[in-house]
């Protein structure tokens, strides 16, 4: 789990070249042009979707380096700290030398009280600078919140628990039935479901309770998204005078659309039930992945970062492989469906 999370954190870091095109460079050495061919064609890029992500989102590319020389519309910590150093050439050069050792140590579980605050600062700092240009991007809040949660848990454990365990110098022992890793995972799961709950509850609040009645008007937003996608690059693929999805929502089946979209909002509001047990975690995690897929399909609205975190922390494939094939072999009983101590604590 922590290796996969380290991988997603790597993908979110603004390391620039050669890391932002690292997969292409690697693949060109093995099969020149093949990967480029796959990811540049929408159909082949989405070959595994659903349920998996587009191939371009799974390959080891980091984010591009930041190029912002000022922060005209400061957001969050940018109100007190000048974060433009994230765009300075020298900092971009040394950034991989900070990020890679931290991620390796994180994956190995060593030095977390030092490593996590560094990763947290890099994540919040770079994304805050990005969001301080007059537009807000909503792709990485969940990841940064998970880093916040893990940092707080590990620092708390270093101060109030056993600092040797927190630094990975001693095997983590359960306290009140849970190790420090259990707590880190539990609070990471909380951060994920909290993001969905926020997105769910804000809808009836901001629309004065009219969201469910007006939800078919999202067809208008679909038209807007098509137009915006077209005018960004003048891509003829998006030059569609009457998008079929919008027609379906506004004219053909507005009531069906209201029901379908309301199910999505209910899923967001009740996402916290995923923490009740592993079965619900799997079911809700998978439903959220499908929810993202339909958002992408219908509105071109994608949150690949959030999908990856759903796969890692809610669906948790490695656990189910273990449960299906290895559980009996290691003779370790773990009743699935039973309330875990964490759900009760």
């Amino acid at each position: 789990m922590r290796i996969l999370f380290a991988y997603v954190v790597y993908q979110s870091m603004p390391l620039g070249d050669p890391f932002s095109s690292g997969a292409m460079i690697l693949s060109n050495k093995i099969a020149p042009g093949k990967l480029q061919e796959i990811v540049s064609d929408t159909k082949s890029d989405n070959l595994l979707r659903p349920p998996l992500l587009p191939i371009s989102q799974m390959i080891p590319n980091s984010e591009a380096a930041l190029t912002y020389q000022d922060q005209n519309k400061p957001n969050g910590i940018a109100n007190v700290v000048n974060l433009t150093f994230f765009s300075k050439e020298k900092f971009i050069e040394i950034l991989p030398w900070i990020v890679f050792p931290c991620l390796l140590l994180y994956a190995a579980g060593i030095g977390l009280p030092v490593v996590l605050p560094i990763l947290l600062f890099l994540s919040i700092g770079s994304r805050t600078l990005y969001n301080s240009q007059g537009y807000i991007h909503h792709g990485y809040q969940m990841l940064s919140l998970i880093l916040v949660a893990q940092t707080v848990v590990v620092l708390w454990h270093a101060i109030r628990g056993d600092w040797r365990e927190a630094f990975g110098l001693r095997k983590a022992e359960p306290r009140h039935g849970r190790t420090v890793w259990d707590w880190m995972i539990r609070y990471s799961q909380w951060m994920i479901v909290i993001c969905y709950v926020i997105a769910g509850v804000i809808k009836p609040i901001r629309s004065d309770g009219e969201w469910f009645k007006n939800s078919h008007y999202i067809g208008i937003q679909v038209v807007k998204t098509h137009r915006q996608n077209y005018y960004s690059d003048l891509d003829p693929k998006w030059d569609i005078p009457e998008p079929q999805v919008a027609k379906f929502m506004l004219k053909d089946h507005p009531n069906l659309v209201r029901i379908f979209l309301s199910c999505g909002v209910m899923l967001e509001i009740f996402a916290f039930l995923a923490l009740y047990n592993r079965f619900l975690s799997l079911a809700i995690g998978f439903s959220l992945v499908l929810f993202h897929y339909f958002n992408d399909l219908m509105m071109g609205l994608y949150f690949y970062g959030n999908e990856k975190l759903d796969w890692i922390f809610l669906i948790n494939i490695p656990f189910w492989i273990w449960w299906l094939f290895l559980r009996r072999r290691v003779k370790q009983e773990q009743e699935v469906g039973e309330i875990e101590p964490a759900a009760a604590v």
């Binding site: 919040i124 909503h138 926020i198 208008i220 937003q221 509105m299």
Partner: peptide
């Protein structure tokens, strides 16, 4: 940041 009220599509 990183707090957000995720306002997208919240008031159609």
């Amino acid at each position: 940041y990183p707090l957000s009220y995720f306002p997208m599509y919240s008031d159609p």
